[in-house]
């Protein structure tokens, strides 16, 4: 456990520094450090104002948004896997992705007319995601029935319905809007700014903290709902709170960066393989590893084909899948 935590922290630190210094404009880490210290009143910066702008207005918010997105998606995925006792659960299980996709498509096709991605695309994506989860919760009888399978099936139904509506709308738009919707669906940190960071920060902090506080409850729930109840766990309340928190946090992230797959499902599994099945270990480490992973993936995405960018979702899968398969083959089966 200790070595996994240390290694993850080192990778996270390297990813964060890499996110600042790596890019088409080469700026050394020591100069970035000097500039950082100069902002704190220590020494003098050797960066030009252009370089300073690139670091602090382009790369830094992008890196921080990547940290937040990776952390939130990974902890939400781990939480979903725990509450549903399902290794295939990811943060999009209850329709967040489909709802956000529909919201964003409405914004781009209907509001923006396909000529631009309107500034309130995130807002409609966020609303779409929350409506989708809400409908899933109501249809699945989340508050009353004990069976989480019903909720999962309701999620599948809602996601299918919303995805078909989204596809229909997308087809009605112009070629231009089709491309914009497609780019949005693939997910990207390219439009990151400090304002988008500040917008999602409260959601990520509150929702991730709730998931972390629920870790012990998720460990209890590993014996199933009936047995958990007999042990004194308020299963329905826990389920409502953790699904609500994981979904809200995911919705906030998706609205800001689009749909980024793979992080939410694989990072918690890698942690499970490395540190065992207790969510008290999996969730905190998933936050660190998810953050590091997404920033690393984004650094690759924006540098490999610079000045153009690879879709972030493609990189997370291309980089993450082999790593996951390697760890899986080294450590054996995934236990839930």
């Amino acid at each position: 456990m200790a070595w996994v935590t240390s290694l993850t922290l080192v990778i996270l630190a390297l990813a964060a520094v890499g996110g600042l210094v790596v890019g088409p404009t080469s700026i050394g880490a020591s100069r970035v450090l000097g500039d950082t210290l100069s902002h704190l009143g220590v020494g003098h910066s050797t960066l030009t104002s252009m370089q300073s702008t690139i670091i602090w207005q382009l790369r830094a918010p992008r890196m921080v948004l990547g940290l937040l997105a990776g952390a939130m998606l990974a902890v939400a995925g781990g939480t979903y896997q725990g509450v549903f006792r399902n290794p295939l659960a990811d943060p999009y299980l209850l329709g967040v992705a489909a709802g956000a996709g529909l919201g964003a498509t409405i914004a781009i096709v209907d509001v923006g007319g396909g000529l631009s991605t309107p500034s309130w695309t995130p807002l409609l994506a966020f609303a779409g995601a929350l409506v989708a989860v809400g409908v899933t919760w109501i249809i699945g009888g989340g508050g009353h029935r004990a069976n989480t399978s019903t909720l999962i099936l309701a999620g599948v139904a809602v996601a299918s319905l919303l995805t078909s509506a989204q596809t229909y709308l997308q087809q009605q738009g112009s070629v231009n809007s089709l491309a914009r919707v497609y780019i949005w669906l693939l997910g990207s940190l390219a439009s990151a700014s400090w304002s988008s960071v500040l917008l999602v920060l409260p959601y990520v902090i509150v929702c991730a903290l709730i998931c972390l506080f629920a870790a012990r409850a998720l460990d209890v729930m590993s014996v199933g709902e009936e047995e958990s109840r007999s042990l004194g766990l308020p299963v329905r309340r826990v389920r409502l709170v953790v699904i609500g928190a994981a979904s809200l946090g995911t919705a906030a992230i998706v609205s800001a960066v689009g749909l980024i797959g793979f992080v939410g499902i694989v990072v918690p599994h890698v942690m499970r393989l490395l540190v065992g099945t207790s969510y008290r270990r999996i969730l905190p480490l998933s936050i660190l590893a998810g953050a590091a992973f997404l920033v690393l993936a984004d650094t690759i995405a924006r540098t490999v084909l610079a000045p153009s960018e690879l879709p972030l979702g493609v990189v997370t899968a291309l980089v993450g899948a082999p790593v996951f398969v390697l760890i899986l083959s080294l450590r054996g089966r995934v236990s839930m």
Partner: peptide, 12 residues
Amino acid sequence: LVPQHPVIPAGM
């Protein structure tokens, strides 16, 4: 309660 078919969570 000792249930008839308890869930045995692998890894615990």
